[in-house]
Computed example of a mutant assay.
Amino acid sequence: MDRKILDKIKKCLRLAQSSNANEAAAAMRQAQKLMEIHGVTADDVAISDVESHMAKAGAGMTPPSHVAMLANMVAGAFGAELVYCPQHDGERWHGRFEFYGVNGAAEVAGYAFEVLGRQLKRDRNAYLATLSKRMKRATKVRRGDLYAQAWVNTVAREVSPHQRSEAEDKTIAAYQAKRWEEPLETRQARDNTKGMRSHDHDALRQGHRDGKKVNFHQGVNGTRQASIGEVAS
């Protein structure tokens, strides 16, 4: 779809809301004419407002549970949707999350995910460094992921899901229907925490403690802005 044509149509539709009846009628006729000439539907105009943002997941073909949890949390915080997009470069898989939404939701959600993801990775690695070097790798992975899940769950307690308007929901639904004719297959995240042992509870406690240090502000008065930092010790 030609972006210039869409912009012209949207400009006419905005003018069609003018308090000047003659100006509004003329703008609406022009919008309808352009839509007819170029085969543009009302849904095409609506979904042109949907933007997307790609964010590296730091994962392979299937993301671990804590990474998927983090992505879903920030998407919900800003009223965005997301889809996991693994790609193979001939040697290995590289995963990315595509956030999409309206009114800047995709970009700010992608930004929040990337910043929080780096902070979580740093904290998880710091926790793993405290474990015995003689510990089995599977045990380290399990405890590291338990720590990360507790970290994300703790941060999520301070987050309120963004309530999209009915119009935004309709726009997103139209975009999804246009882009994906068939419903997307649900991809299950990789859970490395199965077989939890009693000694693993310390990982949960430490993840909770460190998660409480994260300062995540979503913005106020309906604005979609992310401010992320760490509470001073």
Rank of each mutant, 00 (worst) to 15 (best):
V67R: 11
R96V: 11
V159R: 00
A203H: 09
N153V: 14
E114P: 08
D191M: 06
E114L: 08
H53V: 00
L120H: 12
N72G: 05
H199Q: 11
H217G: 00
N153T: 12
K10H: 03
D145H: 14
D200E: 09
H217A: 06
S48G: 01
A59R: 15
A174M: 07
A55H: 03
S48Q: 03
Q87D: 09
N20D: 08
K178V: 02
V74P: 13
A226N: 02
A46P: 04
L15S: 07
N215I: 10
S65C: 06
R96A: 04
A46T: 09
E181Q: 05
A174E: 12
L15G: 05
S132Q: 12
T223R: 11
F78I: 02
E23W: 00
A177G: 09
R209S: 02
H53I: 00
K194R: 15
L34K: 04
S19H: 15
M54Y: 13
L82E: 03
R187I: 15
V102L: 12
M28P: 07
M61Y: 02
K136F: 13
E168C: 04
D49I: 05
Q30C: 00
H94M: 01
G39S: 14
K11S: 15
L204S: 13
G79F: 07
N103Q: 10
D44H: 11
L120A: 09
G195A: 10
P63S: 10
T223C: 00
K10S: 08
G90N: 11
W151A: 05
I9M: 11
A150C: 05
K121R: 12
A112E: 10
D7Q: 07
Q225K: 04
K136W: 12
A232N: 15
L184N: 05
A150N: 04
T193R: 14
A173H: 06
T62A: 02
E107Q: 11
A112S: 14
K121G: 14
C12F: 15
Q163G: 04
